[in-house]
């Protein structure tokens, strides 16, 4: 079954986020594999830090706050950008 195409809001790091409910994670030595059971895509999370951040998103009031709690100040932009890519791939979504 194909879901109707809906225009998706762009990623907003100031909004609350979470691991997408249709996504399962499997730990791997390099980080984790994410599998989306609806769109059937595999996505690779390429570091442990990113995996821990993604799993912890739901405990923070917004994505940027989660990033700030997980990485140093000089890495915030890179991790916010990484979350943006995971949002586009539907590994994470808003809540």
């Amino acid at each position: 079954m194909v879901a109707p195409v809906r225009a998706k809001a762009p990623f907003d790091p100031e909004s609350p986020a979470r691991l997408h409910p249709d996504v399962a994670l499997r730990d791997e030595s390099f980080g984790a594999l994410a599998y989306h059971f609806q769109n059937r895509r595999l996505v690779f999370l390429k570091s442990r830090a990113l995996v821990e951040l993604v799993v912890d998103l739901e405990h923070h009031e917004c994505a940027r706050a989660a990033v700030a709690a997980h990485v140093g100040i000089d890495e915030v932009d890179a991790y916010v950008a990484a979350l943006g890519r995971l949002y586009d791939a539907e590994v994470i979504d808003g809540r």
Partner: peptide
Amino acid sequence: RSLRDRFEHGLAAPIC
């Protein structure tokens, strides 16, 4: 390539 190099060492379970 970095991901491919890691895959060469195998995964915790198969993908395919």
